[in-house]
Design a protein around this nucleic acid. Structure first.
Lengths: 264, 264
DNA sequence: CGTAAGCTTGACAAAGTTCAACGATTGTGG
DNA sequence: CCACAATCGTTGAACTTTGTCAAGCTTACG
């Protein structure tokens, strides 16, 4: 039941537009066999600090560029593990499924993020990865990455760092899920999102959510109605301006303070 | 406040006894400079499937064996990252701390588990790791592991697998924390523990908890009173026999069913 | 053997969920 | 291009679950 609503195509034209405004002709520089060297997304999508030789070795690992329409899956639970994915553009969610049909969003991924790491130790993916808007991903074949890492320490470091970042993020989520109340969760979520968008050159104070209230709720371990209520509450308190999916952080310090409130 | 109670020494003599019964003279075979080749714990503590040469290379990585008393820390938040730790014996918890003093248990580690992975991509550890009973750990210096992995594919695979296992576990915890109700969380916890103990050669149906109600609660995102109530409830329902920290799973199928109940 | 910590249980409070209705937004097909 | 349908978002009220506070009990350890 949730499966249907969650995996249904979501729409995010405004952010898409702003992305295209920031990186003109993104689409032109992609395409199924586009080499990375000339790609406009290179700074966000390839590990930094590589020499030219290392860069070439890295790009040689990329076997497939895939363009996804909103709602399409990068992979689904049980799909054979081919490799990890570099998100070039767009927004992708990962969803973990329980046997009884319940599901939970376990992560959101965007340009420069590495996707599918949780399958490295397994035969197949333990999650679904579904595009929340039209997206581009690159497949890095694991076999080849593994062999290459042998020879290029920087790549190995990159992989390890990615693995670790993933762990740290999930750990932070565990803490959020285990200790925070609804408004703290939502505030944390917004602050994180703001920071990640800022890192990527977008406004930190005004942005468009590319996910539904239901998806946010699933990620944060609360119901969509609670998400909505918290948004309303934070708006009334003057910390936020909410216009459906357009968010404006009015008082970021107060928002930060929301997270670290004493419960008593 | 929680910090004090959580890091306070816990007692687990019975399990300790059973561990020693299973692997006699464990203590004799350890010691600060003990080589792994002769160590009785080798099967649980070293990656399997290594050739003799690979095994030697692996053990050469181990720089320090450390013996911990109950309540001692392997590392604390902010400690410099030296490497990852292999748990040889004992039981260790990791605790994440929030700025305002709140904390949450993020994992439990025992013989054969790898500890401290979440620091690989960082300068220092983002968590505390504290012994819940007298424990032994081996430090694998990351610098050396990194260089060795270069030459030994199996080692690299081992590291990656460990990283991935960690991620998958944390992801599973996120799901638990995000979707399950209290009795489901406790049931899942017991089933996991049972399975992990069985894998290590202990009884799957009867075991001693080595952590307090408070620690279980922190791990599961619920309060200690709730843990206690659920134990009582499951006992009344005949699924469990609870005698303080001694647990006997009476009806494992019913316990499993508890987890996958429809909410409605 | 006493004391401190841990565990259990009850009564009450608070937070979040559920159910339901309505309003807003978006995308589609005439 | 407009109108309609479907999805999404908001809000209220009743209900459920879990948390909080408090007391008494058990266990372990010095």
């Amino acid at each position: 039941m949730l499966a249907h609503t969650l995996t249904r195509p979501a729409v995010a034209p405004v952010f898409m537009r702003s992305l295209q405004a920031k990186i003109p002709n993104v689409i032109d520089s992609l395409g199924s066999g586009t080499p990375c060297r000339g790609c406009r997304l290179r700074p966000t999508c390839v590990p930094t600090g590589l020499s030219d030789v290392e860069f070439d070795q890295f790009t040689a690992l990329i076997t497939t560029h895939r363009r996804l329409k909103t709602g399409q899956a990068v992979y689904r639970t049980g799909d054979a593990f081919k490799g990890i994915y570099l998100v070039r553009s767009g927004f992708i969610k990962t969803v973990a499924l329980l046997e009884d049909g319940r599901e939970q969003v376990t992560g959101f991924y965007t340009g420069g993020d590495v996707l599918g790491i949780d399958a490295i130790g397994a035969v197949d993916h333990p999650t679904d990865a579904v595009a929340l808007e039209d997206s581009d991903v690159c497949l890095i074949a694991y076999e080849r990455l593994e062999q290459s890492s042998h020879d290029v320490l920087a790549l190995q470091r990159y992989l390890h760092r990615a693995l670790s970042v993933e762990i740290v993020r999930k750990q932070a989520m565990m803490v959020l899920l285990g200790t925070m109340r609804a408004d703290e969760r939502v505030a944390t979520f917004l602050l994180n999102l703001s920071e990640r968008l800022m890192e990527r050159g977008f406004s930190a104070s005004e942005f468009i959510l590319r996910m539904s209230r239901e998806e946010i709720g699933s990620f944060l371990g609360i119901k969509l109605e609670t998400v909505s209520r918290v948004f309303s509450k934070l708006q009334k308190a003057g910390l936020l301006q909410v216009e459906t999916r357009r968010i404006r952080i009015v008082d970021i310090d107060a928002l930060r303070a929301t997270v670290h409130q004493e419960v008593a």
